[in-house]
Design a binder for these strands. Structure first.
Lengths: 242, 242
DNA sequence: ACTTTTATGTGACGAAGTCACACAGGAGTA
DNA sequence: TACTCCTGTGTGACTTCGTCACATAAAAGT
Protein backbone atom coordinates (compact mmCIF):
# COMPACT_ATOMS: atom_id res chain seq x y z
CA UNK A 1 0.00 0.00 0.00
CA UNK A 2 1.57 3.28 -1.01
CA UNK A 3 1.31 6.41 1.10
CA UNK A 4 -1.61 7.95 -0.75
CA UNK A 5 -3.68 4.77 -0.63
CA UNK A 6 -2.81 4.28 3.01
CA UNK A 7 -3.91 7.77 3.86
CA UNK A 8 -7.16 7.25 1.99
CA UNK A 9 -7.80 4.02 3.85
CA UNK A 10 -7.19 5.75 7.14
CA UNK A 11 -9.46 8.68 6.42
CA UNK A 12 -12.21 6.37 5.24
CA UNK A 13 -11.91 4.22 8.34
CA UNK A 14 -11.04 6.52 11.20
CA UNK A 15 -12.02 4.07 13.88
CA UNK A 16 -10.53 0.84 12.58
CA UNK A 17 -6.92 1.74 12.47
CA UNK A 18 -4.64 0.76 15.38
CA UNK A 19 -7.62 -0.13 17.48
CA UNK A 20 -5.79 -1.97 20.22
CA UNK A 21 -2.44 -0.32 20.38
CA UNK A 22 -1.69 -1.31 23.97
CA UNK A 23 1.81 0.09 23.87
CA UNK A 24 0.53 3.56 23.07
CA UNK A 25 -2.17 3.42 25.71
CA UNK A 26 0.28 2.35 28.36
CA UNK A 27 2.70 5.06 27.32
CA UNK A 28 0.04 7.73 27.60
CA UNK A 29 -1.09 6.49 31.01
CA UNK A 30 2.34 6.33 32.49
CA UNK A 31 3.05 9.88 31.46
CA UNK A 32 -0.07 11.18 33.13
CA UNK A 33 0.21 12.77 36.55
CA UNK A 34 -2.61 10.73 38.09
CA UNK A 35 -1.51 7.25 37.00
CA UNK A 36 0.65 6.48 40.03
CA UNK A 37 -2.20 7.32 42.36
CA UNK A 38 -4.54 4.66 41.01
CA UNK A 39 -5.04 1.17 42.38
CA UNK A 40 -4.68 -1.79 40.03
CA UNK A 41 -8.41 -2.18 39.39
CA UNK A 42 -8.74 1.44 38.40
CA UNK A 43 -5.67 1.22 36.19
CA UNK A 44 -7.25 -1.71 34.40
CA UNK A 45 -10.52 0.20 34.10
CA UNK A 46 -8.72 3.12 32.49
CA UNK A 47 -6.91 0.93 29.98
CA UNK A 48 -10.09 -0.99 29.15
CA UNK A 49 -11.83 2.26 28.30
CA UNK A 50 -9.16 3.71 26.11
CA UNK A 51 -8.69 3.30 22.42
CA UNK A 52 -6.43 4.71 19.75
CA UNK A 53 -8.38 6.67 17.18
CA UNK A 54 -7.38 8.33 13.92
CA UNK A 55 -8.99 11.40 12.46
CA UNK A 56 -8.59 12.69 8.94
CA UNK A 57 -7.79 16.27 8.02
CA UNK A 58 -10.83 18.47 8.47
CA UNK A 59 -12.83 15.89 10.40
CA UNK A 60 -15.12 17.18 13.12
CA UNK A 61 -14.46 15.48 16.46
CA UNK A 62 -16.73 17.30 18.85
CA UNK A 63 -19.76 19.54 18.28
CA UNK A 64 -21.24 21.39 21.22
CA UNK A 65 -23.35 18.99 23.18
CA UNK A 66 -24.24 16.71 20.27
CA UNK A 67 -21.41 14.27 20.68
CA UNK A 68 -19.45 13.35 23.76
CA UNK A 69 -16.19 11.74 22.87
CA UNK A 70 -14.09 11.89 26.04
CA UNK A 71 -10.56 13.00 26.84
CA UNK A 72 -8.10 12.97 23.96
CA UNK A 73 -4.40 12.43 24.50
CA UNK A 74 -3.05 13.65 21.18
CA UNK A 75 -0.23 11.56 19.70
CA UNK A 76 0.19 13.26 16.33
CA UNK A 77 -1.42 15.88 14.13
CA UNK A 78 -3.21 18.96 15.33
CA UNK A 79 -6.65 19.79 16.66
CA UNK A 80 -8.44 23.13 16.57
CA UNK A 81 -10.77 24.06 19.42
CA UNK A 82 -13.29 26.80 18.62
CA UNK A 83 -16.60 28.37 19.49
CA UNK A 84 -19.37 29.19 17.02
CA UNK A 85 -22.13 31.79 16.95
CA UNK A 86 -25.74 31.05 16.04
CA UNK A 87 -25.12 32.24 12.50
CA UNK A 88 -22.01 30.13 12.04
CA UNK A 89 -19.22 32.57 12.79
CA UNK A 90 -16.22 30.76 14.26
CA UNK A 91 -13.53 31.92 16.65
CA UNK A 92 -10.59 29.62 17.36
CA UNK A 93 -9.75 29.35 21.06
CA UNK A 94 -6.50 27.38 20.80
CA UNK A 95 -4.87 24.51 18.99
CA UNK A 96 -3.61 21.23 20.41
CA UNK A 97 -0.55 19.36 19.25
CA UNK A 98 1.30 16.09 19.99
CA UNK A 99 1.75 15.35 23.69
CA UNK A 100 -1.11 17.61 24.73
CA UNK A 101 -4.48 16.76 26.20
CA UNK A 102 -7.85 17.85 24.84
CA UNK A 103 -10.13 18.07 27.82
CA UNK A 104 -13.04 19.94 26.27
CA UNK A 105 -14.04 17.00 24.08
CA UNK A 106 -15.35 15.67 27.39
CA UNK A 107 -17.20 18.91 28.20
CA UNK A 108 -20.53 17.12 28.58
CA UNK A 109 -19.28 15.34 31.70
CA UNK A 110 -17.48 18.36 33.14
CA UNK A 111 -19.92 20.11 35.42
CA UNK A 112 -18.21 23.51 35.46
CA UNK A 113 -17.99 23.79 31.67
CA UNK A 114 -21.24 25.37 30.57
CA UNK A 115 -20.35 26.62 27.09
CA UNK A 116 -20.51 24.79 23.78
CA UNK A 117 -17.23 24.09 22.10
CA UNK A 118 -16.25 22.53 18.79
CA UNK A 119 -13.16 20.51 17.96
CA UNK A 120 -11.85 19.65 14.48
CA UNK A 121 -8.76 17.79 13.35
CA UNK A 122 -6.79 20.32 11.31
CA UNK A 123 -4.50 17.67 9.92
CA UNK A 124 -4.57 13.89 9.95
CA UNK A 125 -4.29 13.18 13.67
CA UNK A 126 -4.02 10.29 16.07
CA UNK A 127 -5.14 10.31 19.67
CA UNK A 128 -5.68 7.97 22.58
CA UNK A 129 -9.25 8.45 23.70
CA UNK A 130 -10.58 7.76 27.18
CA UNK A 131 -14.32 7.64 26.64
CA UNK A 132 -16.57 10.16 28.34
CA UNK A 133 -18.62 7.71 30.39
CA UNK A 134 -15.57 6.10 31.94
CA UNK A 135 -13.95 9.47 32.49
CA UNK A 136 -17.07 10.70 34.25
CA UNK A 137 -17.04 7.66 36.55
CA UNK A 138 -13.36 8.18 37.27
CA UNK A 139 -13.81 11.85 38.08
CA UNK A 140 -16.53 11.02 40.57
CA UNK A 141 -14.58 8.28 42.29
CA UNK A 142 -11.01 9.52 42.31
CA UNK A 143 -9.87 12.89 43.57
CA UNK A 144 -6.62 12.77 41.58
CA UNK A 145 -8.45 12.29 38.32
CA UNK A 146 -10.96 14.98 39.22
CA UNK A 147 -8.05 17.27 39.94
CA UNK A 148 -6.37 16.31 36.68
CA UNK A 149 -9.54 17.29 34.82
CA UNK A 150 -9.77 20.59 36.65
CA UNK A 151 -6.11 21.37 36.13
CA UNK A 152 -6.42 20.77 32.39
CA UNK A 153 -9.39 23.12 32.28
CA UNK A 154 -7.44 25.81 34.11
CA UNK A 155 -4.57 25.45 31.67
CA UNK A 156 -6.87 26.01 28.72
CA UNK A 157 -8.42 28.95 30.52
CA UNK A 158 -5.07 30.70 30.20
CA UNK A 159 -4.80 29.82 26.50
CA UNK A 160 -8.23 31.29 25.87
CA UNK A 161 -7.35 34.46 27.77
CA UNK A 162 -4.30 34.89 25.56
CA UNK A 163 -6.47 34.59 22.45
CA UNK A 164 -9.07 36.99 23.84
CA UNK A 165 -6.51 39.62 24.67
CA UNK A 166 -5.26 39.37 21.09
CA UNK A 167 -8.76 39.84 19.67
CA UNK A 168 -9.80 42.59 22.06
CA UNK A 169 -6.64 44.65 22.28
CA UNK A 170 -4.62 44.19 19.07
CA UNK A 171 -5.38 45.66 15.67
CA UNK A 172 -6.11 43.25 12.87
CA UNK A 173 -2.89 43.80 10.92
CA UNK A 174 -0.87 42.97 13.99
CA UNK A 175 -2.85 39.81 14.67
CA UNK A 176 -2.46 38.64 11.10
CA UNK A 177 1.26 39.33 11.29
CA UNK A 178 1.50 37.31 14.51
CA UNK A 179 -0.36 34.45 12.87
CA UNK A 180 1.94 34.45 9.84
CA UNK A 181 5.00 34.67 12.04
CA UNK A 182 3.94 31.71 14.16
CA UNK A 183 3.30 29.64 11.05
CA UNK A 184 6.67 30.68 9.69
CA UNK A 185 8.37 29.42 12.84
CA UNK A 186 6.45 26.16 12.85
CA UNK A 187 6.35 25.18 9.18
CA UNK A 188 8.62 27.48 7.20
CA UNK A 189 7.90 30.42 4.91
CA UNK A 190 5.19 28.77 2.78
CA UNK A 191 1.78 28.82 4.43
CA UNK A 192 -0.92 26.67 2.86
CA UNK A 193 -4.12 28.02 4.32
CA UNK A 194 -7.01 29.57 2.44
CA UNK A 195 -8.02 33.09 3.45
CA UNK A 196 -11.21 31.62 4.87
CA UNK A 197 -9.29 29.31 7.21
CA UNK A 198 -7.14 32.17 8.44
CA UNK A 199 -10.26 34.28 9.01
CA UNK A 200 -11.79 31.55 11.16
CA UNK A 201 -8.60 31.21 13.11
CA UNK A 202 -8.48 34.94 13.77
CA UNK A 203 -12.22 35.32 14.35
CA UNK A 204 -12.50 37.69 11.38
CA UNK A 205 -13.97 37.67 7.86
CA UNK A 206 -12.49 36.26 4.68
CA UNK A 207 -12.58 39.60 2.84
CA UNK A 208 -10.73 41.30 5.65
CA UNK A 209 -7.95 38.73 5.47
CA UNK A 210 -7.76 39.05 1.66
CA UNK A 211 -7.52 42.82 1.89
CA UNK A 212 -4.83 42.81 4.54
CA UNK A 213 -2.80 40.17 2.70
CA UNK A 214 -2.98 42.27 -0.44
CA UNK A 215 -1.78 45.19 1.62
CA UNK A 216 1.08 43.10 3.04
CA UNK A 217 1.92 42.06 -0.53
CA UNK A 218 2.18 45.68 -1.63
CA UNK A 219 4.49 46.28 1.30
CA UNK A 220 6.68 43.44 0.07
CA UNK A 221 6.15 41.30 3.16
CA UNK A 222 4.44 38.33 1.48
CA UNK A 223 3.63 36.88 -1.93
CA UNK A 224 0.04 35.67 -2.22
CA UNK A 225 -1.22 32.99 -4.57
CA UNK A 226 -4.09 30.51 -4.47
CA UNK A 227 -4.08 28.61 -1.15
CA UNK A 228 -0.51 29.67 -0.58
CA UNK A 229 1.18 32.56 1.15
CA UNK A 230 4.93 32.94 0.96
CA UNK A 231 6.69 35.10 3.49
CA UNK A 232 9.45 36.92 1.64
CA UNK A 233 10.49 39.52 4.21
CA UNK A 234 10.70 38.17 7.74
CA UNK A 235 12.20 41.37 9.09
CA UNK A 236 9.35 43.56 7.88
CA UNK A 237 6.88 41.02 9.26
CA UNK A 238 8.48 41.20 12.69
CA UNK A 239 8.39 44.98 12.62
CA UNK A 240 4.61 44.79 12.25
CA UNK A 241 4.36 42.71 15.42
CA UNK A 242 6.25 44.96 17.80
CA UNK B 1 -21.58 57.02 64.91
CA UNK B 2 -24.14 57.61 62.21
CA UNK B 3 -24.17 55.63 58.99
CA UNK B 4 -22.30 58.15 56.87
CA UNK B 5 -19.53 58.58 59.40
CA UNK B 6 -19.28 54.86 59.89
CA UNK B 7 -18.94 54.31 56.18
CA UNK B 8 -16.24 56.96 55.98
CA UNK B 9 -14.34 55.35 58.82
CA UNK B 10 -14.49 52.00 57.10
CA UNK B 11 -13.33 53.27 53.75
CA UNK B 12 -10.46 55.13 55.38
CA UNK B 13 -9.43 52.05 57.33
CA UNK B 14 -10.08 49.07 55.12
CA UNK B 15 -7.88 46.70 57.08
CA UNK B 16 -8.78 47.60 60.65
CA UNK B 17 -12.41 46.77 60.68
CA UNK B 18 -13.59 43.39 62.03
CA UNK B 19 -10.08 42.06 62.02
CA UNK B 20 -10.68 38.98 64.09
CA UNK B 21 -14.19 37.96 63.27
CA UNK B 22 -13.79 34.28 64.18
CA UNK B 23 -17.46 33.52 63.66
CA UNK B 24 -17.29 34.61 60.04
CA UNK B 25 -14.10 32.73 59.35
CA UNK B 26 -15.52 29.54 60.79
CA UNK B 27 -18.71 29.97 58.83
CA UNK B 28 -16.81 30.40 55.57
CA UNK B 29 -14.64 27.36 56.25
CA UNK B 30 -17.47 25.08 57.14
CA UNK B 31 -19.25 25.95 53.95
CA UNK B 32 -16.26 25.12 51.81
CA UNK B 33 -16.12 21.75 50.10
CA UNK B 34 -12.61 20.92 51.28
CA UNK B 35 -13.02 21.68 55.00
CA UNK B 36 -14.15 18.19 56.03
CA UNK B 37 -11.14 16.65 54.35
CA UNK B 38 -8.60 18.50 56.47
CA UNK B 39 -6.93 17.26 59.62
CA UNK B 40 -7.09 19.41 62.75
CA UNK B 41 -3.65 20.94 62.28
CA UNK B 42 -4.46 22.02 58.77
CA UNK B 43 -7.80 23.42 59.89
CA UNK B 44 -6.00 25.51 62.44
CA UNK B 45 -3.47 26.63 59.85
CA UNK B 46 -6.27 27.76 57.56
CA UNK B 47 -8.00 29.73 60.31
CA UNK B 48 -4.75 31.29 61.47
CA UNK B 49 -4.10 32.59 57.98
CA UNK B 50 -7.50 34.08 57.37
CA UNK B 51 -8.69 37.54 58.15
CA UNK B 52 -11.79 39.57 57.52
CA UNK B 53 -11.06 42.56 55.32
CA UNK B 54 -13.20 45.46 54.17
CA UNK B 55 -12.83 47.31 50.92
CA UNK B 56 -14.37 50.63 50.03
CA UNK B 57 -16.27 51.33 46.83
CA UNK B 58 -13.86 51.69 43.93
CA UNK B 59 -10.86 50.30 45.79
CA UNK B 60 -8.40 48.26 43.79
CA UNK B 61 -7.78 44.85 45.35
CA UNK B 62 -5.53 43.14 42.86
CA UNK B 63 -3.41 44.46 39.97
CA UNK B 64 -1.78 42.01 37.60
CA UNK B 65 1.27 40.60 39.30
CA UNK B 66 1.99 43.61 41.50
CA UNK B 67 0.02 42.50 44.52
CA UNK B 68 -0.80 39.02 45.66
CA UNK B 69 -3.67 39.02 48.09
CA UNK B 70 -4.92 35.45 48.24
CA UNK B 71 -8.32 33.81 47.96
CA UNK B 72 -11.31 35.98 48.80
CA UNK B 73 -14.51 34.54 50.19
CA UNK B 74 -16.88 37.41 49.58
CA UNK B 75 -19.34 38.12 52.40
CA UNK B 76 -20.97 41.27 51.10
CA UNK B 77 -20.66 43.83 48.33
CA UNK B 78 -19.47 43.14 44.83
CA UNK B 79 -16.13 42.71 43.08
CA UNK B 80 -15.34 43.27 39.43
CA UNK B 81 -12.70 41.11 37.75
CA UNK B 82 -11.24 42.54 34.54
CA UNK B 83 -8.33 42.58 32.14
CA UNK B 84 -6.57 45.67 30.84
CA UNK B 85 -4.67 46.47 27.65
CA UNK B 86 -1.35 48.27 27.53
CA UNK B 87 -3.11 51.54 26.80
CA UNK B 88 -5.56 51.17 29.65
CA UNK B 89 -8.64 49.76 27.93
CA UNK B 90 -10.59 47.54 30.30
CA UNK B 91 -12.83 44.56 29.69
CA UNK B 92 -14.78 43.10 32.58
CA UNK B 93 -14.60 39.31 32.77
CA UNK B 94 -17.20 38.73 35.47
CA UNK B 95 -18.44 40.04 38.79
CA UNK B 96 -18.44 38.35 42.17
CA UNK B 97 -21.13 38.69 44.81
CA UNK B 98 -21.83 37.47 48.36
CA UNK B 99 -21.19 33.78 48.93
CA UNK B 100 -18.85 33.52 45.97
CA UNK B 101 -15.12 32.95 45.86
CA UNK B 102 -12.57 35.11 44.08
CA UNK B 103 -9.77 32.79 43.10
CA UNK B 104 -7.88 35.04 40.68
CA UNK B 105 -6.73 37.38 43.45
CA UNK B 106 -4.38 34.50 44.18
CA UNK B 107 -3.26 34.21 40.55
CA UNK B 108 0.40 34.65 41.43
CA UNK B 109 0.43 31.31 43.24
CA UNK B 110 -1.69 29.50 40.65
CA UNK B 111 0.70 27.92 38.20
CA UNK B 112 -1.75 27.50 35.31
CA UNK B 113 -2.92 31.10 35.37
CA UNK B 114 -0.54 33.01 33.11
CA UNK B 115 -2.53 36.15 32.38
CA UNK B 116 -2.73 39.38 34.33
CA UNK B 117 -6.01 40.18 35.94
CA UNK B 118 -7.33 43.11 37.93
CA UNK B 119 -9.92 43.12 40.70
CA UNK B 120 -11.76 46.13 42.11
CA UNK B 121 -14.46 46.44 44.73
CA UNK B 122 -17.45 47.91 42.91
CA UNK B 123 -19.25 48.67 46.15
CA UNK B 124 -18.18 48.65 49.76
CA UNK B 125 -17.38 44.98 50.27
CA UNK B 126 -16.33 42.59 52.96
CA UNK B 127 -14.43 39.36 52.41
CA UNK B 128 -12.65 36.66 54.34
CA UNK B 129 -9.14 36.47 52.91
CA UNK B 130 -6.91 33.44 53.01
CA UNK B 131 -3.50 34.89 52.27
CA UNK B 132 -1.60 33.84 49.17
CA UNK B 133 1.40 32.32 50.89
CA UNK B 134 -0.69 30.04 53.08
CA UNK B 135 -2.92 29.16 50.16
CA UNK B 136 0.10 28.23 48.10
CA UNK B 137 1.38 25.96 50.89
CA UNK B 138 -2.03 24.36 51.22
CA UNK B 139 -2.33 23.74 47.49
CA UNK B 140 1.00 21.97 47.46
CA UNK B 141 0.28 19.80 50.46
CA UNK B 142 -3.38 18.93 50.13
CA UNK B 143 -4.99 17.45 47.05
CA UNK B 144 -8.47 18.56 48.10
CA UNK B 145 -7.42 22.16 48.35
CA UNK B 146 -5.52 21.94 45.08
CA UNK B 147 -8.65 20.53 43.51
CA UNK B 148 -10.75 23.26 45.07
CA UNK B 149 -8.48 25.86 43.49
CA UNK B 150 -8.64 24.18 40.11
CA UNK B 151 -12.39 23.80 40.27
CA UNK B 152 -12.83 27.48 41.06
CA UNK B 153 -10.67 28.35 38.05
CA UNK B 154 -12.72 26.11 35.80
CA UNK B 155 -15.91 27.75 37.00
CA UNK B 156 -14.60 31.19 36.13
CA UNK B 157 -13.45 29.85 32.78
CA UNK B 158 -17.11 29.32 31.92
CA UNK B 159 -18.04 32.80 33.11
CA UNK B 160 -15.36 34.30 30.90
CA UNK B 161 -16.51 32.27 27.91
CA UNK B 162 -20.02 33.61 28.39
CA UNK B 163 -18.68 37.17 28.38
CA UNK B 164 -16.52 36.52 25.33
CA UNK B 165 -19.38 35.08 23.35
CA UNK B 166 -21.36 38.20 24.17
CA UNK B 167 -18.58 40.47 22.96
CA UNK B 168 -17.71 38.47 19.88
CA UNK B 169 -21.14 37.48 18.64
CA UNK B 170 -23.70 40.01 19.82
CA UNK B 171 -24.25 43.51 18.50
CA UNK B 172 -23.68 46.35 20.89
CA UNK B 173 -27.32 47.36 21.31
CA UNK B 174 -28.20 43.82 22.34
CA UNK B 175 -25.36 43.66 24.83
CA UNK B 176 -26.34 46.95 26.39
CA UNK B 177 -29.94 45.76 26.59
CA UNK B 178 -28.80 42.55 28.31
CA UNK B 179 -26.75 44.58 30.78
CA UNK B 180 -29.68 46.87 31.59
CA UNK B 181 -32.02 43.93 31.92
CA UNK B 182 -29.72 42.12 34.35
CA UNK B 183 -29.40 45.25 36.47
CA UNK B 184 -33.17 45.65 36.39
CA UNK B 185 -33.62 42.11 37.73
CA UNK B 186 -30.96 42.58 40.43
CA UNK B 187 -31.59 46.10 41.68
CA UNK B 188 -34.80 47.41 40.19
CA UNK B 189 -35.48 49.89 37.38
CA UNK B 190 -33.07 52.62 38.50
CA UNK B 191 -29.48 51.99 37.49
CA UNK B 192 -26.82 54.18 39.05
CA UNK B 193 -23.81 53.71 36.83
CA UNK B 194 -22.00 56.34 34.78
CA UNK B 195 -21.69 55.72 31.06
CA UNK B 196 -17.98 55.20 31.59
CA UNK B 197 -18.57 52.39 34.07
CA UNK B 198 -20.99 50.68 31.72
CA UNK B 199 -18.49 51.02 28.87
CA UNK B 200 -15.79 49.32 30.94
CA UNK B 201 -18.18 46.57 31.88
CA UNK B 202 -19.10 45.97 28.25
CA UNK B 203 -15.57 46.44 26.90
CA UNK B 204 -16.68 49.40 24.81
CA UNK B 205 -16.21 53.19 24.77
CA UNK B 206 -18.03 55.80 26.79
CA UNK B 207 -19.29 57.69 23.71
CA UNK B 208 -20.75 54.51 22.27
CA UNK B 209 -22.71 53.89 25.47
CA UNK B 210 -23.94 57.48 25.54
CA UNK B 211 -25.11 57.30 21.94
CA UNK B 212 -26.91 54.00 22.37
CA UNK B 213 -28.58 55.15 25.59
CA UNK B 214 -29.78 58.27 23.80
CA UNK B 215 -31.13 56.02 21.08
CA UNK B 216 -32.86 53.81 23.67
CA UNK B 217 -34.31 56.98 25.20
CA UNK B 218 -35.77 58.05 21.86
CA UNK B 219 -37.31 54.60 21.57
CA UNK B 220 -38.94 55.13 24.95
CA UNK B 221 -37.08 52.27 26.61
CA UNK B 222 -35.17 54.28 29.23
CA UNK B 223 -34.91 57.73 30.73
CA UNK B 224 -31.34 58.98 31.04
CA UNK B 225 -30.06 61.52 33.53
CA UNK B 226 -26.73 62.16 35.23
CA UNK B 227 -25.39 58.92 36.78
CA UNK B 228 -28.84 57.42 36.57
CA UNK B 229 -30.74 55.38 34.02
CA UNK B 230 -34.36 54.53 34.59
CA UNK B 231 -35.91 51.67 32.70
CA UNK B 232 -39.42 52.72 31.77
CA UNK B 233 -40.41 50.03 29.27
CA UNK B 234 -39.33 46.55 30.33
CA UNK B 235 -41.22 44.91 27.48
CA UNK B 236 -39.44 46.90 24.77
CA UNK B 237 -36.13 46.20 26.50
CA UNK B 238 -36.77 42.47 26.43
CA UNK B 239 -37.68 42.63 22.74
CA UNK B 240 -34.21 44.00 22.04
CA UNK B 241 -32.63 41.01 23.74
CA UNK B 242 -34.38 38.24 21.82
C1' DA C 1 -19.25 83.48 43.11
C1' DC C 2 -15.43 81.09 41.62
C1' DT C 3 -12.74 77.29 39.94
C1' DT C 4 -12.20 72.33 39.49
C1' DT C 5 -13.75 67.96 38.69
C1' DT C 6 -16.70 64.75 36.73
C1' DA C 7 -20.27 63.40 33.48
C1' DT C 8 -22.23 63.78 29.14
C1' DG C 9 -23.07 65.33 24.01
C1' DT C 10 -21.49 65.72 19.22
C1' DG C 11 -19.36 65.52 14.68
C1' DA C 12 -15.72 63.81 11.96
C1' DC C 13 -13.06 60.11 11.13
C1' DG C 14 -11.01 55.36 10.82
C1' DA C 15 -10.82 50.31 11.38
C1' DA C 16 -12.97 46.32 10.51
C1' DG C 17 -17.03 43.45 9.57
C1' DT C 18 -21.03 42.66 6.07
C1' DC C 19 -23.17 42.20 1.66
C1' DA C 20 -23.58 41.51 -3.15
C1' DC C 21 -21.48 40.24 -6.86
C1' DA C 22 -17.69 39.39 -10.26
C1' DC C 23 -14.14 36.61 -11.72
C1' DA C 24 -10.41 33.13 -12.04
C1' DG C 25 -8.45 28.60 -11.83
C1' DG C 26 -8.75 23.56 -11.17
C1' DA C 27 -11.33 19.18 -11.20
C1' DG C 28 -14.33 16.32 -13.14
C1' DT C 29 -17.38 15.14 -17.09
C1' DA C 30 -19.42 14.72 -21.63
C1' DT D 1 -11.89 20.05 -26.30
C1' DA D 2 -15.50 22.41 -24.37
C1' DC D 3 -18.43 22.43 -20.53
C1' DT D 4 -19.95 22.84 -15.99
C1' DC D 5 -19.15 23.01 -11.09
C1' DC D 6 -16.85 24.24 -7.18
C1' DT D 7 -13.69 26.61 -4.52
C1' DG D 8 -10.98 30.54 -3.67
C1' DT D 9 -10.15 35.31 -4.30
C1' DG D 10 -11.07 40.50 -5.53
C1' DT D 11 -13.79 44.69 -5.04
C1' DG D 12 -16.85 48.55 -3.89
C1' DA D 13 -20.54 50.15 -1.10
C1' DC D 14 -22.27 50.14 3.26
C1' DT D 15 -22.79 49.52 8.47
C1' DT D 16 -21.16 49.21 13.02
C1' DC D 17 -18.38 50.50 16.39
C1' DG D 18 -14.29 52.59 18.37
C1' DT D 19 -11.38 57.02 18.48
C1' DC D 20 -10.37 61.82 18.74
C1' DA D 21 -11.12 66.44 19.64
C1' DC D 22 -13.81 69.16 21.24
C1' DA D 23 -18.03 71.55 23.67
C1' DT D 24 -21.26 71.74 27.35
C1' DA D 25 -23.29 70.90 31.81
C1' DA D 26 -23.92 69.60 36.36
C1' DA D 27 -22.00 68.83 40.82
C1' DA D 28 -18.43 69.63 44.31
C1' DG D 29 -15.11 72.07 46.58
C1' DT D 30 -13.18 76.78 48.17
Amino acid sequence: MDNKAKEKFMTDNPDLWNKFDDETKKYVCENTCFWDKLDDDTKKYVLDNMEVVNYHAGQNIHSGDVQCVGVLFVKSGRLRVYIMSEDGKEVTLYRIGPGEVCILTASCVLSEITFDVYVDAEEMSQAVVLNAYAFSKLIDSNIYIENFANRMKAQRFSDVMWTMQQILFYSFDKRLAIFLYEELIKNGPIIRYSHMEIAKYLGSAREVVSRMLKYFENEGIVKVSRKEIEIIDKKKLMERIS
